[in-house]
Design a protein around this nucleic acid. Structure first.
Length: 227
DNA sequence: GCGACAG
DNA sequence: ATCTTGTCGC
């Protein structure tokens, strides 16, 4: 029973009710992640983030769409839904994605690329929230996290744009990127339909004078204030 | 058994 | 994530 809205976002999805079901679904969907570059021309880039106003019973998702490459605000959408899944490290998407999908459905036009607040492949089962959102929407996505979930890495040179690979169990799962000199690095990983190298380039192209990309900052502001 | 642990 | 003011440092 899957319904779609006018711009093609499925909203009424079957959803796991327990951590065990969620993990099984991640293992199944992880095989659908595309790591090859297939982004196309990007005119609209969006930041995606979720806040929990009040006691934390409500999830408020925000999508901030910016023009590319000038990064000017062009559209935004917010959606609030009751929280239906607890926060469990590794299962973040099951808590936040329902609200995110609702917010995306409220846009007049879909973005060409999504920067998601959280991990992509840099996840225990290689299926963080950025991968999950990419697979569900079919859109190119990138995971941009402020802290590490899994993996190890060498020190990152303190130069803007420098990055080192993030390793886990013998494979490269992401990039630890110095988006700005003198600040903690950010964790970038493939979400869907692009390579790690291109993901890092897109993130840098969306980043100005701050540690986090403009897209992420705009979405965060929207998700926490609601307007 | 003792830590680590996106948001 | 959220609850919260001032304060240390560049």
């Amino acid at each position: 029973m899957v319904s779609e809205d006018s711009i093609g976002i499925a909203t009424d999805l079957p959803w796991p009710q327990t951590p065990a079901q969620a993990i099984a679904l991640q293992r199944e969907l992880a095989g659908r992640v595309l790591r090859v570059d297939d982004v196309g021309s990007v005119r609209r880039v969006a930041g995606v983030d979720v806040g929990f106003p009040g006691g934390g019973q409500i999830a408020r998702a925000a999508v901030a769409v910016l023009s590319f490459p000038d990064l000017r605000p062009v559209e935004q959408a917010v959606a609030e839904l009751p929280v239906a899944f607890p926060y469990v490290p590794g299962l973040l998407s099951f808590r936040e994605l329902p609200a995110v999908l609702a917010a995306l459905a409220g846009l007049a036009e879909l973005p060409d690329l999504l920067l998601v607040d959280g991990q992509g492949l840099a996840h225990p089962r290689r299926f963080g929230i950025a991968c999950h959102l990419g697979v569900l929407t079919g859109l190119p996505t990138i995971g941009v996290a402020k802290t590490r979930l899994v993996g190890a890495h060498d020190p990152v040179p303190d130069r803007r744009g420098a990055w080192v690979p993030l390793h886990d169990r013998g494979e490269v799962i992401g990039a630890v990127l110095r988006s700005r000199v003198g600040v903690r690095p950010i964790y970038v990983s493939v979400g869907h339909r692009l390579s790690l190298e291109r993901a890092v380039e897109w993130v840098m192209a969306c980043t100005g004078r701050y540690r986090l990309p403009q897209t992420t900052r705009a979405a965060h502001a929207l998700a926490s204030t609601g307007a």
